[in-house]
């Protein structure tokens, strides 16, 4: 354990360089650059509001904020786990040349997406203020949601990174799974609609939905569901333990596969 902490301290400059590289290269050669991290969720929100506001007849004024909470968290989870999944294979040229702890590649893939995600939260703040939502003490719960989503993505990221080295199919399987997860997150419909249908357990056992719900409680100013919080926390810690253990156990075999 001490060995890992020491190596982490030694390599934190490299971790930072890798994070910086991810952010820089994501928007390089686009005219608007990093502004896209704000514009993209904003445009998406408008589309979703128009489509689902009309179809589902939801004309609440704050509906865009509701959508934005879900979509921002979901899209961070989706992009970061996808990036983690391919992180080892993408960096194979480096891995084959110089010894560097391999978890850095996976961790940096999650972290650079996290920073972009944090920047994109500006949109949420802006839209919420414009639509007249007043911040309350419950807003501090948002910090919990932000920590939980990072933990969950990191844990899932490590599991996927390990699997991704051995099975190329994971990339395609995971993108299908992500679509399924998206519909299980109640991003653009009210969960109450599922309440009566008997499928509510799908939401309750989806840690990502639990985190989104905590975020919504924070933004809309109500006490979060403690059950959700405990469940999401345990689930995230579980994925981190499984993810890291599997990764460390298998990491010496990576080089023979890539």
């Amino acid at each position: 354990m001490k060995k890992y902490i020491e190596s982490f301290i030694n390599y934190r400059f490299l971790l930072w360089e890798l994070v910086k590289k991810g952010i820089k290269l994501k928007y390089r050669r686009s005219y608007l650059g990093i502004i896209w991290s704000l514009l993209e969720p904003l445009l998406n929100m408008i589309v979703l509001t128009i489509v689902f506001g009309t179809i589902l007849g939801n004309h609440e004024k704050t509906f865009p904020v509701y959508i934005l909470c879900g979509r921002l968290l979901y899209s961070f989870f989706s992009t970061s786990t996808k990036a983690a999944l391919t992180s080892i294979r993408k960096n194979s040229a480096m891995i084959k040349k110089v010894y560097v702890p391999k978890y850095l590649y996976t961790l940096s893939a999650v972290l650079y997406n996290y920073i972009i995600f944090l920047i994109s939260l500006i949109v949420l703040v802006g839209v919420a203020l414009v639509l007249g939502l007043k911040p309350s003490v419950y807003l501090f719960q948002a910090l919990l949601a932000l920590v939980l989503i990072l933990m969950l993505s990191t844990g899932c990221g490590f599991i996927l990174a390990t699997l991704g080295v051995f099975f190329r199919d994971m990339e395609y399987l995971w993108s299908v799974a992500l679509t399924l997860i998206m519909y299980m997150c109640a991003i653009f419909y009210q969960p109450e609609r599922l309440l009566s249908s008997g499928f509510y357990w799908i939401l309750k056992f989806n840690p990502l939905y639990c985190i989104i719900d905590i975020m919504r409680s924070a933004v809309f100013g109500s006490m979060m569901n403690m059950q959700y919080f405990v469940y999401a926390l345990c689930f995230s810690i579980g994925t981190i333990i499984i993810g890291l253990a599997g990764f460390i156990k298998k990491q010496d075999e990576f080089i023979l596969q890539i």
């Binding site: 360089e17 890798l18 590289k21 480096m94 010894y99």
Partner: peptide, 27 residues
Amino acid sequence: PLLELGAGFDKQYTGSENIYLYGAMLG
């Protein structure tokens, strides 16, 4: 380690950015 020089560079990065990245890789 001077193994297959320059193979670890990021192609989209400029030379000067690669100096920092590759330097960090070498510790």
